[in-house]
Amino acid sequence: MTVPAEYLPLLEAAVGPMPEKAELPLPPMGLSVDEEREQRKRDLAVAFRVFGRLGFSEGVAGHITARDPEDSGLFWVNPFGMSFNQIRVSDLICVDHNGVVVHGRRPVNRAAFVIHAQVHDARPDAVAAAHAHSVYGKAFSSLGIPLAPLTQDACAFYDDHGIYDDYAGVVNETVEGKRVAAAIGDHKAAILKNHGLITVGGSVSAAAWWFVTMERSCQAQLAAMAAGEPQEIDHETALLTRSQVGSDIAGWFQFRPLWEQTVASSPDVFD
């Protein structure tokens, strides 16, 4: 088994000696444009099922997007008003940065294209972006503070997330989408005050995982704050830990168990 050199530091930190003829899931490489598009759509549909199972849905709110690999002015997203738990590959719609649906019959959530179009425009390195109204993300966002390096998992976001503190109702205007994108900056995430969380990644799986673990880190910090005086990990150790658990490829690997579990239990997701 040949492992790309860029993956070796992660693997050396995470696994023991590799057995002969080792089997290890790796991100697909060398795909054609059509194959890459299909892979992103499959990952997107699986991510929605995961979000649904984890209770991240809130009515019609929430969206995950994947940039089209051929036309950077287009992205794939969930259709408006459809349950995360039912989304299949064939249900996904493709929209441009003005919200015009170019593939699919259902409309798009206005906030989805207002926010995500600006995020994708500002971050050409970001293949995907995820936003949902999850319970602990919403609760934590009301504090208007950053995540602290209280745990190993939270260190993935140490000095790597912004705060958007100008909530002005449902995001309906392009200018507010630009502000959200500016709050993310070159980080992997942002806390949207009084709103929730948003994450980005170099793959759909990475963006989805950052959302999952950021939500749980919010839950852990809220619990710690309620219990007493949390003790933070020191600056140098937090930075070291971020380098170990906070890379894009680490996000892809971390999401893999959820991906495989979902595919095994919901084979219709690829219909």
Rank of each mutant, 00 (worst) to 15 (best):
N109W: 02
G144V: 04
D166I: 11
V212E: 02
A168L: 15
A206Q: 06
Q231D: 14
V171L: 08
V175H: 09
R123N: 11
E229R: 13
E176V: 09
G99Q: 11
V204E: 00
R123C: 03
C218G: 09
N194E: 10
R179T: 02
Y167W: 10
A148F: 04
A154R: 06
G228V: 03
A190Y: 08
Y136F: 15
S203D: 09
E232I: 06
W210R: 14
T237W: 03
I233M: 07
A129N: 05
Q118P: 00
R106E: 14
G104Y: 08
V101Q: 06
I163D: 00
K193G: 05
A168G: 13
F157N: 07
R105V: 11
H116Y: 06
G99R: 11
D153N: 12
A226E: 07
W210T: 02
H161W: 09
S205G: 05
A112H: 03
V171T: 11
D159S: 15
A148N: 14
A238M: 07
E232Q: 12
H116W: 01
V171E: 03
G196H: 05
Q219Y: 00
E176I: 07
V100F: 11
V175Q: 10
D186C: 04
R179D: 01
C155D: 01
I115S: 01
V135Q: 00
C218E: 00
N194I: 03
F140N: 04
P230G: 11
L192K: 01
I115R: 05
V127N: 07
A117S: 15
A132C: 14
Y158C: 06
G177W: 10
P146V: 07
D160W: 15
H116D: 01
Q221Y: 08
N109P: 08
R179V: 03
G99I: 11
V175L: 07
A208K: 06
S134T: 10
